[in-house]
Every structure is written in C-alpha cells, then in structure tokens.
C-alpha cells in the first residue's frame, strides 16, 4: 500500500505540473555589484533573435521589500524575470543573505503568477545564489526548476587550486543531495587567458562539478573563449547569447504573441535598452 501511495502522489504531482505548465519564466540573477539592469543588453539581444518575451525586473531591498519595474505581458508563457538586490556586495555571508532575499522574491512570484516550472540563469555570484536557494529553500515549494545556467560562476570563489576548498564550496557539497535530480545544469566558463576570464579562475568555475555531477540529471560545462570573454562581458557575449536562446528559451517564437504597444516593436514586452532605465 505504501509504494502505491508514493506512486500516486508522484503521479498527481507531475500531472499537476503538466497541467499548470502554461507559464515557465526564466529567472535571472546578476552577479555582485550589478543591478536589475545587468541583463538589459542580453535580453535585447535575445529578443532580437527571437519573437521576444517580456521582462520584469525586481530589486529586493535590504528590509525584504520588493520594487518592480517592467511587467509581464498577458499572454507571455516565458517571461524574463530579473531579481537583483539592493545590497549586492560580494562574499559568502552576503551571498547567504542574498539567497534569503531571493527566496522572498521567489515566494511572491510563485504567489502572483502561480507557475509550476521555471528556469534560471545566474551570472557570477547569481549562480551561487541559485545553488544556495536550491539547497536551502527549494524543497518548500511545489515548483520545479527544470534548467539552470550559470555563467562564470565561481563555485570555489577566487581560489584557483581545487584542493583548497572554501567554506562555501564545502557547504554546497555537503547539501548537494538537496539538489533536484530532474534539473539540467549548464555551467559556462569564459576564458580570456589560460587562467580564466580575468576575474574568476577557470578552476573555480570547474569546481561546480563537485556539486552537480552525479546529483542533477545533466551537468554540462561549456568553455567560451575569444572576444568578449572577460568576466563582465560574458552576459553580452554572442556565443553565450546563442547558448541561452538554444538551451534556456523553450519557446523563442511563441505563437500568438504580437509585438506589444509602446515596446521595442519586437516581442511582447518592452525590450530594455542599455542605459535607458539606469538610475
């Protein structure tokens, strides 16, 4: 009787996911010292390649309050949602705080938009925040994260020797069994020179394998070199934009979506331009 109950619960859960799968947002978290506008040029480029999706930007204040800009178009099934933090400083302690703030924003998002699946893109420390969120908060939700792409994420912080594991990497590895085994992870490393992208050592990005490999469904590591492979250029790198539209955007040309009014003329929502909304 017990295995039957377990099977039934699983069955109902996945039926529910399929049933409510109309919206599957892509949530983006920028790295340290970056604001909610960090991905503007990335999304402009993405919307240029595809018929486009709308963009919602959220900043979580240090007191847990949320401020919004942009909005999700009515029929958009795959909007971009950027979650940034007022306090966007580096360091493991700040990352822990930021993961807790992200959890606040995420709770509000699932409540407002009642989606059951989402995909995530994290640049630099944003990937660490996603990892921490998955290990610490994700199990509270009846929501499935299907894909995660981290771009230049330093899983071992600035440490280039994989044998010197930082406290953070150790913590990640200890709780890795909390990571969903249905998740597909892409970790993208930029290499400007042979050591890394100029900011993050390549070994630190590669340390992600100790966390994800043999735990999530698929873990793929991709190394991008050439022009614009510096750490802060990665989100605009044309190779990476291609990878994102290929791996992360499920419906690049959503049927029935018309260019929105007052937007860029492409896509459902206003495709932001770099700088236009910067404070």
């Amino acid at each position: 009787m017990f295995p039957a109950t377990k099977w039934m619960a699983q069955n109902v859960k996945s039926a529910r996911v399929v049933h409510n799968s109309r919206m599957q947002p892509i949530i983006l978290i920028p790295g340290s010292s970056a604001t909610e506008d960090r991905f503007n040029s990335l999304i402009t480029q993405l919307n240029h390649q595809t018929s486009g999706h709308s963009l919602l930007k959220i900043t979580v204040k240090t007191n847990g309050k949320l401020t919004y800009s942009g909005k999700i178009a009515a029929r958009d099934t795959e909007p971009y949602i950027v979650v940034a933090f007022e306090d966007n400083k580096d360091g493991y302690n700040n990352i822990k705080k930021q993961a807790a703030w992200f959890n606040i924003a995420f709770k509000q998002l699932t409540k407002t938009y009642s989606f059951n699946r989402f995909r995530g893109i994290g640049h630099s420390n944003g990937g660490l925040i996603f990892t921490l969120f998955l290990e610490k908060y994700y199990s509270e939700y009846d929501v499935q994260m299907t894909r995660l792409m981290t771009i230049g994420t330093p899983y071992n912080l600035e440490e280039s020797n994989p044998n010197n594991r930082t406290q953070m990497l150790n913590d990640f590895i200890t709780s890795r069994d909390k990571l969903p085994n249905t998740l597909t992870v892409y970790s993208i490393a930029g290499t400007e020179n042979l050591d890394g992208d100029g900011t993050v050592p390549i070994e630190s990005v590669e340390a992600g394998k100790y966390i994800f490999q043999n735990q999530v469904a698929h873990y793929t590591q991709i190394t991008v070199s050439g022009d614009e492979a510096g750490h802060s250029e990665l989100p605009q790198n044309r190779q990476i934009v291609n990878l994102i539209s290929q791996y992360m955007v499920a419906t690049p040309n959503q049927q029935g979506v018309r260019p929105g009014q007052g937007g860029s003329g492409r896509g459902v929502g206003p495709a932001p331009r770099d700088g236009t909304q910067n404070p």
Binding site: M1, A4, M8
Partner: peptide
C-alpha cells in the same frame, strides 16, 4: 478497496 484511497491521492 484501494481505489478511493489512491483516487483521492491518499
């Protein structure tokens, strides 16, 4: 006897 139990998801 299990049909209702499973049909209501436990």
């Amino acid at each position: 006897p299990l049909a209702a139990f499973l049909g209501t998801n436990g």
